[in-house]
């Protein structure tokens, strides 16, 4: 077990390096930099700009800048924001809990609804089952931000139902963003659960369990469900990037100052240290969740050995 984890952690290094390089190149190759953006609005002496750039190390050749960045990174030093001079780590620690709250609740809500719904769908081949299925397919076809805009229009603000605040997380303001973020998760996960359950229910051991007179409810929820959880757990891990991507949009609509909004704003203002910091933290979070999922396989299904048999 220890050896497996070690090998996985080792394999994460090239992936992580690749992500850092990608972010670095994309951010730096963009024309314009934070100091030039300043120039458009206020008058600034070109020499002062050159000095400011030199002070941030932005005049160094790109490979050297990248090396410096990686060197600071291993000490968890992301530097200071070019915009408000605050520590990037501080900004991230401020934004992270908000995104973690919204995305975490969305994940719980999404999978919490998807599993019973998927199981129910796999046993219903009648008109009701087909109707719910059609409903899911429809829900899948609607832009998620459109749902968010509609929800905001109907449930927040004085226009129709004044139930939630229009911006921010306080006073129950987290309810709408969580639901809107969970929406695509529910649809995709339900379909996944249903497909896995249908496969499991066709297996011989289910037939055997029924033949032994075990109540149908127990056959479905214990025998079949346990054996179809594996692909669902896989999805759980792979789903994190989607959730993060979705939170950029959701946080912008609902005015949640989380990681998504931080990423959006820092890209807009070419705040390199913040861009790199946010991307790094997101990449670490995703890779960790993928690792945890792989480790969870062993617990869920003892037949899967993580290490080669001796």
């Amino acid at each position: 077990m220890k050896r497996y984890v070690f090998r996985r952690l080792l394999l994460m290094i090239p992936t992580f390096f690749g992500i850092s390089l990608l972010t670095f190149l994309v951010a730096r190759l963009a024309p314009g930099d934070p100091f030039l953006l300043d120039l458009e609005t206020g008058e600034l002496d070109p020499e002062a700009i050159a000095r400011a750039r030199a002070a941030q190390g932005l005049d160094a050749p790109l490979p050297l800048q990248f090396a410096r960045w990686m060197f600071h990174l291993v000490r968890f030093d992301f530097g200071r924001s070019l915009i408000d001079q605050r520590l990037v780590t501080e900004k991230i620690f401020e934004a992270m809990p908000r995104t973690a709250l919204v995305a975490g609740l969305a994940m719980i809500l999404g999978f919490g609804l998807a599993i019973p719904l998927g199981v129910w769908l796999s046993t219903r081949r009648d008109r009701w089952g087909r109707a719910v299925e059609a409903l899911l397919l429809t829900a899948w076809s609607v832009p998620s931000f459109w749902i968010a805009v509609m929800a905001l229009m109907i449930f927040a603000g004085p226009r129709f139902l004044d139930l939630f605040p229009v911006q921010g997380l306080e006073n129950g303001g987290f309810v709408l963003p969580v639901i809107c973020l969970a929406f695509p998760t529910i649809v995709v996960a339900t379909r996944q659960v249903r497909a896995a359950m249908e496969e499991a229910l066709a297996q011989d051991y289910v037939k055997a369990a029924r033949a032994r007179g075990i109540p149908e409810r127990r056959v479905i929820w214990k025998h079949a469900l346990r054996n179809s959880l594996l692909p669902v757990v896989t999805m759980f891990g792979l789903h994190l990037p989607h959730l993060v991507g979705g939170s950029v949009i959701i946080e912008r609509i609902f005015g949640v100052p989380g990681m998504g909004l931080l990423a959006f704003d820092s890209i807009g203002s070419r705040d390199y240290p913040t861009i790199m910091g946010v991307a790094t933290v997101m990449a670490i979070a995703t890779m960790t969740s993928m690792l945890l999922v792989d480790l969870a396989y062993g617990f869920i299904d003892p037949r899967i050995r993580l290490e080669r048999a001796k």
Binding site: L22, V26, T286
Partner: peptide, 22 residues
Amino acid sequence: SRVLEVMQTFPLVFFLLALLSI
């Protein structure tokens, strides 16, 4: 495969945001 993994790990919207603001 490594490139593939990097692309899958990375939040797509974030990448496009950076790329398309260029």
